[in-house]
């Protein structure tokens, strides 16, 4: 008896299953991240024999210059907006996939949703550039249909950045919502209707609360990377596309100020963690 109890509760038997994943996490994420953490406190990169010493100046730079705070705020706003649009677009799609379509139709639509995952990110963004620029696909098509002339040049604008990011991240929302929606017992929806609830009331009072875990998981999966995104803002946003993520990227690839880039990254990480932990109690109550 004693051995079986220990066997069930102990971590021993689980070790062979856990080790590969944790070994990988340590090597691939923890080590580079630690190195970055160290860099963020250095005056210079310890390369080609340059002298360096420990400092807090890069962290101080964030607070002394209003620029970084403004950019971080802009990035958080961008994250919230993209997440909201993903929810508005993704949830209805997930609902139809999970509860309306069946068989082949469901498979086909599912494939269309996942397709962005299979295409290269840069290709995706440059395709949008072709569509959004002046004289591009959208401009030409609309002017061919409409009797009057309008100029559509969304390229290098805030909406272009939103469009590109929503396109990249909406599958996450569809997938997480799909999982929770298809787990809802149909009898619950029928029960609500039999009690006199309209379709809208059923959606608001039964389906949405039960799908909330999926909506939240999707939101976290989208919000966190969007706040740090740099590719879409840089290519589709042009001069308007300066965000916190693009500034970090600059430090690494253009200015070669790795310590500042690393410090800005860790501040972002801290801010995101604070936002998530502050919203956790509220989100739990919503559930």
């Amino acid at each position: 008896m004693a051995t079986s109890i220990r066997g069930r509760g102990g971590i021993g038997p689980a070790l062979p299953l856990l080790t590969p994943a944790y070994l990988w996490l340590v090597v691939a994420i923890f080590l580079p991240l630690s190195a970055m953490a160290l860099f963020s406190f250095m005056t210079e990169l310890p390369m080609s024999g340059r002298d360096w010493s420990l400092t807090l100046e890069h962290y101080a730079a964030f607070f002394s210059s209003g620029l970084y705070v403004t950019l971080l705020w802009a990035s958080i706003r961008l994250g919230l907006e993209v997440t909201l649009w993903c929810a508005i677009i993704g949830f209805p799609a997930a609902y139809v996939l999970a509860r309306v379509l069946k068989g082949r139709a469901r498979e086909a639509i599912f494939l269309l949703v996942i397709l962005p995952f299979w295409s290269n990110g840069l290709v995706r963004i440059f395709s949008w550039a072709m569509v959004l620029r002046e004289g591009g696909l959208l401009d030409t098509t609309l002017n061919a249909i409409l009797p009057f002339r309008i100029d559509i040049d969304l390229m290098y604008s805030y909406p272009a950045v939103i469009i590109g990011l929503v396109h990249s991240y909406v599958p996450y929302m569809v997938l997480t919502c799909y999982l929770t929606l298809q787990a809802i017992d149909n009898a619950l929806i029928e029960a609500a209707r039999s009690l006199g609830a309209s379709r809208l009331q059923t959606l608001r009072r039964v389906v949405l609360p039960l799908a909330m875990p999926g909506l939240l998981a999707g939101s976290v999966l989208i919000f966190v990377p969007v706040v740090g995104s740099f590719m879409e803002p840089r290519i589709l946003g042009g001069r308007t596309g300066t965000f916190y993520g693009t500034v970090i990227e600059d430090q690494f690839v253009a200015v070669f100020n790795w310590p500042l880039g690393a410090a800005l990254s860790f501040i972002l990480l801290a801010v995101v963690l604070v936002i998530l932990s502050l919203s956790a109690p509220i989100l739990r109550r919503v559930q």
Partner: peptide
């Protein structure tokens, strides 16, 4: 007439209580 306008009460096989 749609379900919600029929004024019926129904008890389901697995009860279908709202878990939330």
């Amino acid at each position: 007439v749609p379900v919600e306008k029929r004024r019926i009460g129904m008890v389901f096989q697995n009860y279908a209580l709202f878990p939330n």
